[in-house]
Design a protein around this nucleic acid. Structure first.
Length: 854
RNA sequence: GGGAGCGUGGCGGAAUUGGCAGACGCAGGGGACUUAAAAUCCUCCGCCUCCGGGCUUGUGGGUUCGAGUCCCACCGCUCCUACCA
């Protein structure tokens, strides 16, 4: 048989697999189901090495699962809405759909060349009206459930993308997509009330045993639950103002430090700010400061060690705990949209307040101290006198003892402390405070001022207000006749915008914002279960059969965005009665980045991009897949190195020849020259091969189950190495000496092929047919049987240690009694322990003996 | 500032979760075959050594019969997040 030639056999088998439809899947209750899913790609054009690694992991899991008897759903689609298509359309005076669909075809062809086993009949393309129609339908269900809201508030505006962004899409004040500095603008926008599910999104992280800890931690941090209390402060009267007794509420997790509050701070955006100062002599100064603070860019705001600025308003608030008046300031370090946009400042216990107090010479009242603080006895001695300035270098934020705190003095203070509980209880009794839980998570801003997205199905009517598009009118189709390069948008497209009100029939305007593309990716995995349904987004029976996804695979960059939104969608659709589970993704594998050989990110500007197509052209897809898997654990970064690819290519070649040889179809070029070894030698090496065969099959299964592809391949290499030893020792005549010997060789050959089938599918299919003479597919075979008993050796080598250091190695029978092993161990290190007192000898069966001697 | 994680040969990485550190591979040295090269095959390959052995998993301590693995401190790197009261 001929040498391994991937360039000839890979396209040939890809064609056969497509024609026989071997990856198509339907519900089948006779087998356990397994849903293996990789995050669908954005159709950006050519595929890159990140795609190769991500989709190879998924494909190996899918193929292996089929061999283990699962009915496997393994689909693929495209996250096809989004800005790059618009930008390309503007550049080429074309339409985004043209660019998008061309790229999809390119990527699809590449995925086929990689040999990925998708059920292509289930493809979902997000910009297809058959799909986005149901995204609109889901939007309407959210609306009915009160989870859609239009509201005016300061939002993140990306001047580069000319649209608003969700909180999650802004990092360090910059746009996640184009890196522009994000501005704050007051706009009326559409929101999904994800905060209604904040607690459940946090709690259900506990269900996700199959998720990496760091991803769960990131989500928990993002949701950011804080337990604390609301405290009502009262505005003190000011001559010429009639607003005395106005309440301003603050949120705090440290009510225990209320006695240390020496000033009060409002965010520059605080809604009632102007009312507080209007007509006073400070009005102009305060409002000018607030306006200037609002203009500071988000990037500047994001800098951690930024200097704080503020200005006194001339007003005072009354602290409910002690009736004292504290000055009200406006400062740029208070976040407007967390809590109430107002905070009580306790400089002795909060570093930010401390810095601000130092800068503006505001009192720092020590009310909480560590027990070893030298101030502690002093404060106790001078009861009654409040110390208002201390020479601390920083605030004391840890747990401590409350001092100068009225009747709470002496209690323990800190988050969740006794002191905090006592003060909140008293505030509650007095009606000036109450328990409160705050979340960092904000509602999801979903409207985008872009054309290439899913239109929000809403209509603005002068008489009826904002009304939903009736379900029977869906989908709201994107107009195709639009010239983006001429500056046209949905808002300027009169034909699209003009409509009639579905309630009163009067002329009305259609909503011209589209939905965030993350709404498309929040439910595509549900659509895969029933992709051609024209009457519903999916049949609940089908969705509940396949879902939740058993293994989800994707990049860590989606740890918050996509995964959080998808969890939210799942919970809402469950409450809608469409799904009967709480969490969409049971197990999550976050793959590490593929970097160049120096550990740098591959980018066009650096000129270090490795093209998967070039690699396939050089060594074939199977070698590329195997190399990617062998480079290391999937969740770690991988440094791509072409030398490794050449090595793997040689490995596939070597096993190819071994299989041919074992199957008796080797020609002169591929036959291994056996040595005519003695019968004893052959017996010995055969025994070793048989043992390895069983051990490795078990080991590879175990490794696949844990996604340890690199060690699985290493184990297959070990089996190949002993196979090589066997083939060098036994001549062809010796190996064909009996039916038993022939069966032994055939089993070994089939085992090698099956073990590599999920990894190198074309290679395996060709050998399965051409060398082993089968007519069905290797990919529909069962995983090779193995017997753990057969993997055991008769004798094992164990180490003999003296005081933990290896001094000798001895061979003992695998089933030797502990006492015999101990005795053998003692005998083996006789000289090393001569004259010493033996305290004890520990035996670890099959591993070592440790003799403790003095 | 907060959170998560990592640190093992020249390199990528193993190590049944506390039991022989360096599996498997890449790179490299030596050899066989060849007129020669490629391919292939064999073989060596952590460091030091006075060839007895000694030292090795970022550094220092601890727990243990035994530590890459557990605990404490420090050093270094990576990722996430960011004035969240």
């Amino acid at each position: 048989m001929k040498q391994y030639n991937p360039h000839e056999l890979e396209p040939r088998w890809q064609k056969v697999w497509e024609e026989t439809g071997q990856n198509k899947v339907e519900e089948d209750t006779s087998k356990p189901k397994k849903y293996v899913l990789e995050m669908f790609p954005y159709p950006s054009g050519d595929i890159h090495m990140g795609h190769v690694s991500n989709y190879t992991y998924g494909d190996v899991i899918a193929r292996y699962s089929r061999m283990r008897g699962f009915n496997v759903l393994h689909p693929m689609g495209w996250d096809a809405f989004g800005l790059p298509a618009e930008n390309a359309a503007i550049k080429h005076h074309s339409h985004p759909a043209k660019w998008t669909y061309a790229n999809i075809e390119t990527q699809k062809a590449s995925f086929k060349r990689m040999g990925f086993s998708y059920d292509w009949d289930r493809t979902v393309v997000a910009c297809d009206p058959e799909y986005y129609r149901w995204g609109q339908w889901i939007f309407l269900q959210f609306w009915k459930r009160g989870l859609v809201e239009r509201r005016n508030s300061p939002v993140n505006w990306c001047p580069g993308c000319k649209t608003v962004l969700a909180n999650e899409q802004v990092t360090e004040g910059r746009c996640w997509r184009c890196d522009s500095e994000v501005e704050k603008r007051d706009l009326t926008q559409w929101y999904f009330k994800i905060t209604d599910y904040a607690q459940e999104l946090l709690d259900d992280l506990d269900q996700l045993d199959g998720w990496p800890e760091r991803v769960k931690q990131q989500q928990a941090n993002w949701i950011g639950r804080s337990e604390g209390a609301e405290v009502d402060f009262t505005l003190a009267p000011l001559e010429g103002k009639d607003d005395a007794e106005t309440k301003i509420t603050v949120f705090t997790t440290r009510a225990d430090t209320l006695f240390g509050c020496s000033f009060f701070v409002l965010a520059p955006e605080y809604a009632g700010l102007h009312d507080l100062v209007s007509g006073t002599e400070r009005e102009q100064e305060v409002m000018e400061f607030a306006e200037a603070a609002k203009k500071v860019s988000a990037v500047e705001r994001a800098q951690g060690d930024r200097e704080k600025h503020g200005v006194f308003t001339g007003r005072y608030m009354i602290n409910p705990i002690n009736g004292e008046q504290v000055p009200v300031w406006v400062a740029d370090y208070v976040v407007a949209d967390y809590g109430t946009g107002a905070v009580m400042a306790v400089p002795c216990g909060d570093q930010r307040d401390f810095e601000f107090a130092r800068k503006y010479d505001l009192p720092i009242i020590p009310i909480i101290l560590g027990e070893d603080d030298p101030l502690y006895p002093q404060l106790k001695d001078e009861q009654g006198r409040v110390v208002t300035s201390v020479d601390w270098e920083a605030a004391y934020a840890a747990e401590g003892i409350l001092v100068q705190s009225g009747k709470y003095t002496g209690m323990v203070g800190g988050k969740h402390s006794d002191g905090e509980a006592a003060i909140v209880a008293d505030l509650e009794a007095a009606g000036t405070g109450r328990r409160k839980v705050e979340f960092r998570l904000r509602d999801w801003l979903i409207s985008r001022q872009r054309y290439w997205g899913n239109p929000i199905p809403a209509i603005h009517c002068e008489h009826c207000g904002v009304v939903p598009v009736p379900e029977e009118d869906l989908p709201v189709m994107l107009p195709e006749d639009i010239d983006l390069s001429a500056g046209e948008t949905l808002a300027t497209h009169e034909e699209f915008a003009k409509c009639t009100c579905p309630v009163c029939g009067a002329p009305a305007r259609r909503e011209t914002d589209t939905m965030d593309t993350f709404t498309c990716s929040s439910w595509y995995y549900m659509r895969y279960t029933d992709p051609h349904n024209a009457a519903a987004p999916f049949d609940p029976a089908k969705a509940n059969h396949w879902l939740p996804v058993d293994q989800y695979i994707g990049g860590i960059e989606h740890a918050i965005l996509h995964l959080l939104y998808s969890r939210f969608f799942t919970k809402v659709l469950r409450d809608e009665g469409l799904l009967d589970f709480d969490e969409p993704f049971k197990n999550l594998l976050c793959q590490g980045m593929v970097l160049d050989s120096h550990g740098d990110v591959m980018s066009k500007s650096k000129g270090n991009v490795v093209s998967p197509e070039d690699m396939i052209a050089g060594y074939g897809a199977d070698a590329v897949r195997t190399t990617m898997l062998f480079m290391g654990p999937p969740d770690k970064e991988k440094l791509w190195n072409e030398d490794g690819l050449a090595g793997i290519y040689k490995f596939l070649n070597r096993v190819w020849r071994q299989v041919c040889d074992l199957a008796g179809v080797a020609d002169d070029e591929t036959l291994f020259a056996g040595d005519e070894a003695s019968v004893d030698e052959i017996h010995e090496v055969s025994k070793k091969v048989l043992r390895e065969r069983h051990r490795v099959v078990g080991k590879v299964a175990e490794d696949f189950d844990r996604n340890n592809f690199n060690t699985a391949i290493a184990a297959i290499m070990e089996l190949s190495n002993v196979t090589g030893e066997y083939l060098r020792k036994a001549s062809l005549e010796q190996r064909c000496s009996s039916d038993h010997a022939k069966a032994f060789d055939a089993d070994l050959a089939e085992t090698l092929v099956k073990l590599l089938a999920p990894i190198a599918p074309h290679w395996a299919e060709e050998l399965w047919h051409a060398a082993l003479g089968h007519t069905d597919s290797v990919h529909s075979q069962a995983w090779p049987a193995f017997d753990p008993e057969m993997a055991k050796a008769d004798e094992v080598e164990i180490a003999v240690q003296v005081n933990g250091k290896v001094k000798a190695r001895i061979m003992v029978a695998a089933d030797a009694a502990e006492d015999d092993v101990r005795a053998a161990g003692l005998a083996a290190v006789e000289s090393a322990i001569a004259g010493k007192e033996i305290k004890k000898a520990i035996v670890v069966p099959g591993r070592l003996v440790n003799i403790v001697a003095k």
